[in-house]
Structures are given as C-alpha cells and as structure tokens.
Amino acid sequence: MAYSDKVLDHYSNPRNVGSLDKNSNEVGTGLVGAPECGDVMKLQIRVNPVTQIIEEAKFKTFGCGSAIASSSLATEWVKGRTVDEALAIKNTEIVKELALPPVKIHCSVLAEDAIRAAIGDWKKKQGTEATEPAKVQAAQ
C-alpha cells in the first residue's frame, strides 16, 4: 500500500516531536493506544491560562507511518486554537487531509482521541469538568 505524499512528508519530517512538562498546570497530556497494532501515542498541549489558546503542542508516537503522520498533523492543527476549537477537530478531517486509506482510519481516530485525552487532562487540572469524558484508552 502506498502512502500519500502528505503522510510521507509528516512521517519523514514530523512536526513538534518531543514532550512538555506533564506536571505543569498549563499542560495537558493524552496517552492513547491501539492494542491490536501496538501503537502508542502521546500528545501534550500547553494552554495559555488567560486566552485558553493552545500555544504549544508536542507528540511522540510509536506506530506506523499513518499513526505518526496523524499525530504530527494533530499537533499542527491544535496549535493556535482555543481548547474548544481543538475539541471540534474530527478524525474525518485528518483522514481527508492525509488521504488515509480505510485500513488506516483507526490511526486518525487515535489522534482525535489523543487530542481529547490531552484536553481532558488539562481540564481536570483546571478543576473543570471535561465536556466529554476523555478516552484514556482508545481503540478497544
């Protein structure tokens, strides 16, 4: 199966790889995984407490090219958005942008879950209820 150019680009030149201080009050961490393929994805965001804008996003993913590309793209997309705007990101948009084939759609689901989990973690730290329960464990 051939990967699209966009997947290859993100795979060979991933954006925002790294980590943020998970103990910081401004940082939300989402760790999700897909047991069947063994993928693990960590996505972290740093949110400006005043503006609620995600100023920084980092990820580290162990998995296939599509999983890496999906999470790389996710960090690019959440940056500069408010938390609520970031929650609106749908996996279908990732699928479209990266031209993922049907067998790789679960990678985009994982990336969406990672965003939600990171935001959920951040909201927990702020003492506010998450609008939707963060899916800590993705992909049953």
Binding site: V32, P35, V40, H106, V136, Q137, A139, Q140
Partner: peptide, 30 residues
C-alpha cells in the same frame, strides 16, 4: 479490537478502575 467509537458493550460498561489499569499499561508500553 475495534475502535471505541463503535461503543462496544465493554467500553460502555468500562468503569474507572479498568481505565486505570489500561492507562498503566499504556504508560508501560510508552
């Protein structure tokens, strides 16, 4: 082994404790 969006019986019935166990496993895997 399906995505949670399908909301399996298991996911629906999954309590906090199970989530804890899974995230522990994820940490370990990471």
């Amino acid at each position: 082994h399906e995505k949670p969006a399908g909301a399996s019986l298991a996911a629906a019935a999954m309590g906090e404790s199970k989530k804890g166990a899974s995230s522990e496993l994820l940490e370990e895997a990471f």
